[in-house]
């Protein structure tokens, strides 16, 4: 199951460089490739937690990777940076549950990938969090992420031109990431 580390390393770092340069397809490929790895490591570290709790940590990690990507040094390999974020989010999630754990960084080096949960549809946590955003941010994310409508349709519904929608989406995601932090 483990991929050839060297090969994957080159891929991830290059994909992120392309993504930061504005290549959305590369970015989507990168996030898609990361997700099973993140899922595997969260489940391995969080034995006893249910799958939806783990998936929530995976999503928080993806969101943090997104809003914090400026903190990656493009001259460095991406993987240690990703693991550091995942570890931080996992520790944070445990802390919120009132469980203290010790996670050595080295343990994150080799892990199995895990398949997605098939029945992971409406997530209550994400829904409640989105509900706590300012109304327009909430409406936009509800339309895009929960109802899964296209950006044209959401833009039309909220009266946002494509440029304004991009700005609004950026701001809404930044706020969502901050909310997840402040929710403790």
């Amino acid at each position: 199951m483990t991929k050839d580390a060297g090969q994957a390393e080159g891929d991830w770092s290059q994909l992120m460089r392309d993504a930061i340069a504005g290549d959305q397809r590369a970015y989507r490929r990168l996030l898609t490739a990361m997700t099973p790895v993140l899922r595997g490591l969260v489940r391995a570290r969080a034995a006893g937690m249910d799958a939806s709790w783990c998936e929530d940590v995976v999503q928080e990690t993806l969101l943090a990777i997104h809003v914090k990507r400026a903190t990656w040094d493009s001259g460095q390999p991406l993987r240690p940076w990703v693991y550091a974020i995942a570890r931080h989010k996992l520790v944070d999630a445990f802390r919120r549950r009132g469980r203290r754990i010790h996670l050595p960084v080295e343990d994150f080096a080799d892990m199995l990938q895990a398949p997605p949960e098939p029945d992971m549809l409406e997530r209550r946590d994400a829904g409640t969090l989105i509900g706590r955003l300012p109304e327009r941010d909430a409406a936009l994310l509800r339309c895009l992420a929960l109802e899964e409508r296209g950006s044209d349709e959401c833009g039309a519904r909220l009266g946002l031109a494509p440029g304004a929608l991009r700005v609004a989406l950026h701001r809404a995601l930044q706020r969502l990431a901050r909310l997840r932090q402040e929710e403790t």
């Binding site: 996030l31 993806l62 549809l121 991009r166 950026h170």
Partner: peptide
């Protein structure tokens, strides 16, 4: 929120 959909939304930003 499905994780794949979250990825779509993140990539759109």
């Amino acid at each position: 929120m499905r994780t794949e959909r979250l990825i779509d939304v993140l990539a759109a930003d």
